[in-house]
C-alpha cells in the first residue's frame, strides 16, 4: 500500500539522459548509470558510456533532477531522485541493469524496490547513515560540517581522485561538481532502510581501499546486505569512473554481467 505516494505523485522534471548505444544490437541488457550527489551524467559520459557500448552493451546515464543539465530542483527529495531513475529505466527498450555510484547507489538501492532491475551494481556506495558521515567528517571537516546545517556538502578534489590523475583533470572535474538538494542530503544522514528489492536482482558491490570518501568497512557492510563481498580496486579514488585507471572497474562490471546467468541477455 502506497497511499501517500499515489495521493502525492512526484512532480515530473525534465531529465538529462546521455546515451551510447552499440551499432549492432546483440540483445545485451542496457546499463543505466546513476551518478552520486553533485555529479551529473557527464561523469559517465567521460569514459564509461563509450567503453560500455564498445563492449556491446547499450549504455545510458541520467542526471538526477537538480544535477547536470536536468531541471533545477532545490527542494528535491530522495524519493524524487528514485522516481527519476525508475522513469528512465522503464523507458529503456529492455530490462536494465542499474549502476549507482556514491550516493547514486543509495538511489539505486531504493529504485530496486520500484523496478525489477536485471541486476544492480553499487560503485563506491554511499548508503548514508552516521558512520559514513563520521568518516567524511574526519577526512574533510570543512566540506562536510556545513551540510549538517543545511549548507552544501563539498568534496575536495583530492578526496575524489587518486594522485595518478593529472592535477589539471582533477581540477576540471571538480569544477563541474554541483550539489544535491538539502532534503536529499539530509536523507543521506538519516536514511530509511530501502525496501526489499523486487525481482531478485543479483547485486555487485565494488570500491577501493584507497577511496577517501567510502571506507572499506562501509563497502563490506553494503556488500553483506546483498550477501556478497566487495570487489576491490586498490589505488583508485572515489570517482572511479573519472580516475586515471577508470578502465579496470568498468571492465570488471561488464565481465561480471557476462558471467552472471541472471543478468545475461537471454533468461530462457
Amino acid at each position: 500500500m502506497r497511499s501517500w505516494e499515489w495521493a502525492r505523485p512526484v512532480r515530473p522534471a525534465r531529465r538529462e539522459v546521455l546515451a551510447a548505444v552499440p551499432e549492432l544490437d546483440e540483445g545485451r541488457p542496457p546499463l543505466l548509470f546513476v551518478p552520486g550527489f553533485g555529479h551529473g551524467a557527464w561523469a559517465f559520459a567521460e569514459h564509461w558510456l563509450g567503453h560500455t557500448s564498445g563492449r556491446g552493451f547499450p549504455a545510458y546515464a541520467v542526471s538526477l533532477r537538480g544535477h547536470g543539465d536536468s531541471e533545477p530542483a532545490p527542494d528535491a527529495t530522495l524519493r524524487a531522485y528514485v522516481h527519476d531513475v525508475v522513469q528512465v529505466a522503464a523507458d529503456l527498450p529492455r530490462r536494465a541493469v542499474l549502476v549507482g555510484h556514491g550516493a547514486g547507489a543509495l538511489v539505486v538501492a531504493h529504485a530496486l524496490a520500484r523496478y525489477p532491475a536485471r541486476a544492480a551494481v553499487l560503485v563506491a556506495p554511499v548508503l548514508g547513515g552516521w558512520p559514513t558521515f563520521g568518516a567524511a567528517l574526519r577526512r574533510n571537516p570543512a566540506g562536510t560540517l556545513p551540510a549538517v546545517f543545511g549548507g552544501r556538502l563539498r568534496l575536495a578534489p583530492r578526496q575524489l581522485f587518486s594522485r595518478e590523475l593529472p592535477d589539471a583533470d582533477a581540477r576540471r572535474y571538480a569544477a563541474r561538481l554541483g550539489g544535491a538538494s538539502r532534503r536529499a542530503q539530509w536523507a543521506l544522514l538519516n536514511p530509511d532502510e530501502p525496501e526489499a528489492a523486487v525481482g531478485r536482482p543479483p547485486v555487485l558491490v565494488l570500491g577501493s581501499p584507497d577511496d577517501r570518501v567510502v571506507p572499506v568497512s562501509a563497502l563490506n557492510r553494503a556488500a553483506r546486505r546483498y550477501e556478497s563481498a566487495p570487489l576491490l580496486f586498490p589505488g583508485l579514488g572515489h570517482d572511479m569512473m573519472l580516475d586515471a585507471r577508470w578502465r579496470e572497474p568498468v571492465d570488471a562490471i561488464l565481465d561480471w554481467l557476462e558471467k552472471e546467468p541472471a543478468a545475461g541477455p537471454s533468461r530462457a
Binding site: R2, P12, H83, V86, Q87, A90, D91, R114, Y115, P116, V198, G199
Partner: peptide, 9 residues
C-alpha cells in the same frame, strides 16, 4: 503497475 511506471509526460 507498481514496478513499471507510466511516463511522466
Amino acid at each position: 503497475f507498481p514496478d513499471f511506471p507510466m511516463p511522466d509526460s
